[in-house]
Design a protein around this nucleic acid. Structure first.
Length: 228
DNA sequence: GCGACAG
DNA sequence: ATCTTGTCGC
């Protein structure tokens, strides 16, 4: 199905169907590889540059980059980010020679009005363990976490159900929002992402993915899969 | 009607 | 998201 032709009401219907498929149970298993996914584009352009960076875990050393270019006309509408970015990310995913145990997506998972943020949407379509890591809140209520690195507080919906974690990844920086995408729970998502934070506010997977797609857009990295 | 609003 | 210089604080 072509997302570019969908109306917002139709996209909402699809999210309501897909949310039935989301699973948030504890992730059991060893993590040997993690990956980060992100998109870059020039303002006012319909060309998007998608990328997935594969990293060894827990060393967090990059193993390779999958980069693809795609045309997208679906607009950015808060709550519907997946319809703009998932198609290109699936192309990059298909091109990845080796899949990670867990994929960290730049955006939210179930911390979404219909529990279907981009990380959950991608996870269901690719049948892959995913976690959403966002820089700003989209949905939910929370108390500001303490100022020290590692301080965190629950992100809940209006019924008090926990849908994610607001996490202070570094001292004196704005917190990040971590939520399960698919096949993992809130606690497991926080545990994995916190182990992916090194020197910067953002976890290495999405930070490196962001750098890669930017370099790709600017012509510094070639399209395709490139071993690190 | 008003405020909120991932990338 | 992207553009973009200087500036404040650890």
């Amino acid at each position: 199905m072509n997302y570019n032709e969908l109306s917002i009401p139709e996209a909402t219907r699809l999210q309501q169907e897909l949310r039935k498929e989301v699973i948030t149970t504890p992730f059991k298993g060893k993590v040997q590889y993690v990956a980060g996914a992100d998109i870059s584009f020039n303002k006012f352009s319909t060309t998007v540059y998608a990328g997935i960076v594969l990293l060894h875990f827990p060393s967090l050393q990059p193993v390779g980059y999958s980069l693809v270019k795609k045309e997208v006309t679906f607009p950015y509408v808060p709550g519907f980010l997946a319809f703009r970015e998932v198609p290109a990310l699936l192309d990059a995913w298909q091109q990845l020679p080796q899949k990670p145990d867990v994929l960290v997506v730049d955006g939210h998972g179930i911390a979404h009005p219909r529990r279907m943020g981009i990380a959950s949407h991608f996870g269901v379509l690719a049948n892959q363990v995913t976690i959403g890591s966002a820089k700003k809140k989209l949905f939910g209520l929370y108390e500001e976490p303490g100022p020290a690195k590692g301080n965190h507080s629950p992100l809940t919906d209006k019924q008090g159900e926990v849908i994610g974690t607001v996490y202070r990844s570094k001292q004196n920086v704005k917190p990040i929002f971590i939520s399960p995408g698919h096949l993992i729970d809130v606690a497991g998502s926080l545990d994995l992402v916190s182990q992916c934070v090194q020197r910067y506010r953002l976890p290495e997977p999405t930070r490196l993915a962001h750098n890669a797609v930017n370099q790709f857009r600017l012509g510094t990295l070639p399209q395709g899969y490139t071993p690190a």
